[in-house]
Nucleic acid binder design. Structure first.
Length: 501
RNA sequence: GGUCCUGUGGCCGAGUGGCUAGGCUCAGCUCUGCAAAAGCUGCUACAGCGGUUCGAAUCCGCUCGGGACCUCCA
């Protein structure tokens, strides 16, 4: 089996993945700022990293997966001025900032669960780590890379850049970055145009503030991730992830802070997921083209033609590589919905095969056997190539006709060896359920319903034998109106499934 | 202006220089009381122009188009 390769933003190439501590992986992913609902674009990132987390577990690593909740210190603009997002929203709704935080944290967790994302192993909050952030700012000051102006602590980018390349993550030169920045105004207290705040002095209007060596204030946005990743994963850890939009500023500053504080580069592999777009334009709150997960699940958004189940959306995202932009459209989503149904039906069929009944030797079709083995073994290859879920799915889809042909007895079950069949069954389960986190769109595990359905199937079978098509059609048509599809299989059997909403 | 990404068949999308990804749609056939599903077959594309090569969607150059980041957003 090939070894896992990960595309590292830092080196701009795929690198062999070797954990700093063998079999143990530390992964930090930038989580949401909980001042409003997460939209579908945000979800894409968390779904991508959920797959990555699951695959690392599948490979046998012990993974510490840290994903923060930003519940303080994220300003409206990055000019280190104005209200923080929580204060603004709280004032608007006349509630406590922590009520805002609570509401959207709960909502975020609910959405993550609906998408079948596993929870991270640690989910730290910024407000819970004020002390750590203050301490880190103090050390950076002591090391000479930050300065205090009237109760606010700034990171000295230009000084840092003399020793370490500040723009290393996105391959930018300091001069180029300076060009894109506005001139310092007369009222600015920063020394350099690119300097950013580690700690910000609070005015009386700020509802969230804490005591510090520099007076009352609150942490800058970037320092929380540096402080919390160090606390739980150490000064150097394996993977740091987030959306691509965070690389240029947030992650660039994280690297600078950690370097200035601990004199080491904090992260071995930087991973960035690409954006979700609508009509080619990035989905974002400011563009007003964001879909809320609930709008998607209920189909209530004006741009949606129908409702889409969370698992279909998850599958839709898996058909694209995480580093490619993914364009959202009804057509694409409906195609994904049909594709998942086809794949999942085949998976359930496959699960129903009993390998003991298959061949022990002479009936085996060597060509088919080789084809199946090749495709099944490719799953790992594709995932090891920077988590290429789209290619794994393509390999699976190529196996669907084989599975369906065995079901229809066009291909004998004994054409495959018992070992191969068992292997295929376990790999499908491993990938579809464990790694991809997919599940049946509509679980029909209700025992009573199954009994009722069996009864209807028996009656319909009897009617068909008597060529009483009026009765048999009535059963199928009325079930169809209820959203239950009944299908005649080859050999007189019948199957049923609950239709998508 | 700077740093990058990108342009693939009706749509969505994967693609490590040579071996037609895959999904959806569409058409035909088979199966079938009908329906649905399924199976088989067909639709064989890589923005344009040059270059490197025995051979390029894949490498290089130029042109044109789209997008992201450099200002809050995963």
């Amino acid at each position: 089996m090939s070894a896992l390769k990960i595309y590292n933003t830092l080196s701009r190439e795929k690198e062999h993945f070797e954990p700093i501590t063998p079999d143990h992986v530390g992964m930090y992913v930038c989580g949401p700022t909980v001042y409003s609902d997460v939209h579908l674009g945000n979800c894409r990132t968390f779904i991508s990293f959920d797959i990555i987390y699951r695959y690392l577990l599948f490979l046998g690593h012990k993974v510490r997966y840290v994903r923060n909740i930003t519940d303080a210190g994220h300003l409206e603009g990055d000019r280190d001025e104005g209200d923080d997002k929580f204060t603004k929203k709280a004032r608007l709704e006349q509630v406590e900032p922590m009520e805002i935080v609570q509401r959207y944290t709960v909502g975020f967790h609910k959405v993550m669960e609906l998408f079948n994302n596993l929870p991270p192993t640690i989910e730290p909050t910024a407000t819970g780590h004020i002390m750590e952030q203050i301490k880190m700012a103090q050390e950076i000051i002591a090391n000479g890379y930050a300065y205090v102006v009237d109760g606010t602590v700034y990171f000295d980018v230009e000084k840092y850049n003399k020793e370490k390349p500040y723009g290393i993550l996105t391959n930018r030169k300091l001069e180029d970055l300076l060009e894109g920045t506005r001139e310092l105004g007369g009222q600015d207290e920063k020394k350099g145009r690119l300097d950013f705040a580690l700690w910000i002095k609070a005015g009386p209007e700020h509802l969230m503030q804490w005591p510090s060596p520099w007076g009352m204030g609150f942490p800058g946005w970037h320092i929380e991730c540096s402080a919390m990743s160090e606390k739980y994963l150490g000064k150097q850890f394996d993977i740091h992830g987030g959306g691509m939009d965070l690389a240029a500023t947030h992650h660039t500053n994280e690297i600078a802070q950690s370097q200035a504080c601990y004199h080491v580069s904090p992260v071995k592999y930087w991973m960035h997921t690409n954006m979700l777009t609508v009509n080619g334009v990035r989905m974002s709150k400011s563009a007003g083209n964001g879909f809320l997960p609930e709008e998607l699940f209920s189909g209530s958004h004006p741009l949606l033609e129908k409702a889409y189940a969370p698992v279909n959306v998850r599958f839709f995202m898996l058909q694209t590589h995480y580093r490619s932009t993914l364009d959202f459209s009804n057509e694409a989503l409906q195609a994904a919905e049909k594709g998942l149904k086809r794949l999942w039906d085949a998976y359930e069929t496959l699960t129903g095969f009993v390998p003991e009944q298959s061949s022990t030797g002479h009936d085996i079709d060597p060509e088919l056997e080789a084809k199946v083995l090749k495709l099944v073994n490719e799953f790992d290859e594709h995932m090891n190539d920077d988590f290429n879920t789209a290619k794994v799915l393509a390999s699976m889809f190529e196996l669907v006709p084989v599975i369906n042909s065995i079901k229809d007895k066009t291909i004998a079950l004994t054409a495959l060896s018992a070992d191969t069949l068992t292997w295929m069954q376990s790999r499908f389960k491993n990938y579809l359920e464990d790694v991809f986190g997919l599940k049946a769109v509509n679980e029909a595990d209700n025992k009573k319903l199954q009994g009722v359905m069996q009864l209807l199937i028996d009656i319909r079978k009897g009617a068909k034998e008597k060529k009483d098509f009026a009765t048999s059609d009535k059963i199928r048509n009325q079930l169809s109106e209820l959203g239950i599809a009944l299908k005649d299989e080859k050999g007189g059997e019948m199957s049923w499934s609950i239709e998508s909403p």
